[in-house]
Amino acid sequence: MRLQGKVAIVTGAASGIGRATAVAFAREGARVGVTDINLAGAEATAAAIGEAALALRLDVTDEAAWAEATATTIKRFDKLDSLANVAGIGFPGTIMDLTIDHWNKMIAVNLTGVMLGCQAAIRAISETGGSGAIVNVSSLAGLVGISDVAGYCASKGGVTTLSKSVALYCAERRLPIRCVSVHPTYVDSEMLDPVADAIGNREAMVAAMASLVPMGRIAKPEDIANAILFAVSDEAAMLSGSPLIIDGAQLAGPSSAHTKG
């Protein structure tokens, strides 16, 4: 098993990518702090995993809550090796539609939450003699601009470069901690529910999104969890600071449609 003897914390683990990541980690032998702001959801994920999971409520924007979550995880599992910062939120809106409330919420959860997680994890991993990686879930929107999700782009772009900065910090100090950003395209998870509700037809929404992906489908949470698993495992021992793009070729370039009239 690829994470035998390892301890990890996963945020946003009540649903979607976070839940799939916690399950993948446990399947490969890790003990997992399953965290979410929705404690009942975290408990459901932890119950599905069994004894290797500890459910915790964690508001990633709360610095004190991070200290408590890492301390509780270490108390139960003795150490920490890795952190998957998955928790995130999205509100649509162009630069001109964006409200300050939505902007502040996205920056708080998607960017400040990741920053606090990196700080807490570096401390906890160092103090307990662990070794592993911090994996931050960014997005295609953290690599390119999309006009109707301006705030989301800004928050995820911050995650991309913060991850590089954290990778260099750890490398320069010879800390046994790598930092990797992961960039999914659309993922068929609960995070799309509000968009589906707004459109009124989930199937049509998924089909429209799939039409933008050269592989012809959108991602499943497990597709992203597999990449996060690879990134935290010792198999990725020299992978740090670089992005892992899981997008069915969406960013590879324009399609040949323009030559087909």
């Binding site: 590089k164 050269p214 592989m215 597709d223 597999n226 020299m238 600071g241 670089s242 899981i246």
Partner: peptide, 17 residues
């Protein structure tokens, strides 16, 4: 890696940074 295509995986100990 069934959804990963058309991308570059950099394994360089941070050298490209």
């Amino acid at each position: 890696a069934r959804f990963i295509t058309g991308t570059a995986v950099i394994v360089d100990g941070g050298m490209s940074l």
